[in-house]
Amino acid sequence: MTKLLARFAESALWIARYMERAENLARLLDVNEMFSQDRHDLEEWLPIVTINADDERFHASYPAPTVEDVINFYILDDENPTSIKSAVRSARENARMIRHLISTEMWTQLNMFHNRLATMNRGEIRLANLSPICMEIKETCQTHAGIISGTLYRDEVWCFYQIGKYLERADQTTRLLDIKFQHAARPSDDIEAMTDAGLWNALLRSVAGYHAFRREHPRGFKPEMVAGFLINDDGFPRSVAVCLDELKRLFGELAAEQGRPVPATITGLHAALHDAAAALPLDKARDGDLHDYLDGLQGRFIDLYGRLAEHYFSGDVPPPGETRPTQTQTQG
């Protein structure tokens, strides 16, 4: 059997990450629009910019920003590498790299998604139309996921794709939680914001988790309950714990495919992440003070990617004097 080129493994992983990112952004924008007390109020939208660490770039591009600017920045802005359009373009570019390894259906759907976004204009993403557009993007991402599930051959390419997907999903879940905790703990708000049912309701709906949460917690919304659910629930498909379980299973599949174990540098960090997730500080969650904890998790996800890249994507030690570019996490 032909061994998988290191570069192709990297591309497979990044297709998944970019598509997962696009879907999560659409969810976030949709829910922000739906559950803002005043959706025309810029203050309701700026936390998204902050949590994605995009303040500098955003304010440079939009010196006098409006709500529509935030939306444009995250959906259509070509200059913003974290916009949905940029993410889908990058996913397509990576798919082009491994076009010969993926199904025509997978490629065509991604190509059409890219063409659709390339011809979308600002009029289509105005506030009144935002919800249907986010729905369309979300559903297109889900169609992608369905085609992957139905057509992608189960070999190393599949393993790396899935690893990328769960790595990104876990990371996105922590960011989403972070946004909402920061939102709740804004200095202008009083402590009651932490018990604002609308906020937690919105957060859960953005990850399609409201009903699942209700099955676990029939009454009330306590911040520590919501945080616990999104970090540690073992049945919710977007929780950090489920993503970590999937990663563990995928490391096993990868080892079987390659006939050699996943190195301890990677499994060790995975175990540490697992422990960290289990050790969610509920008292801090109660007080809305989760930022440092969540930031710590995100740092470890970045490390985990770094170790994967180092081990699988470098193609062994190149001859002296030769370098090859490595894809960074905010692949521009």
Partner: peptide
């Protein structure tokens, strides 16, 4: 970038499990 030639003039490709 995916290929290299070693000192014995053999060609290799860089895979996820090495050359």
């Amino acid at each position: 970038e995916d290929l290299f030639v070693d000192d014995d003039d053999r060609v290799f490709m860089r895979t996820t499990v090495g050359p």
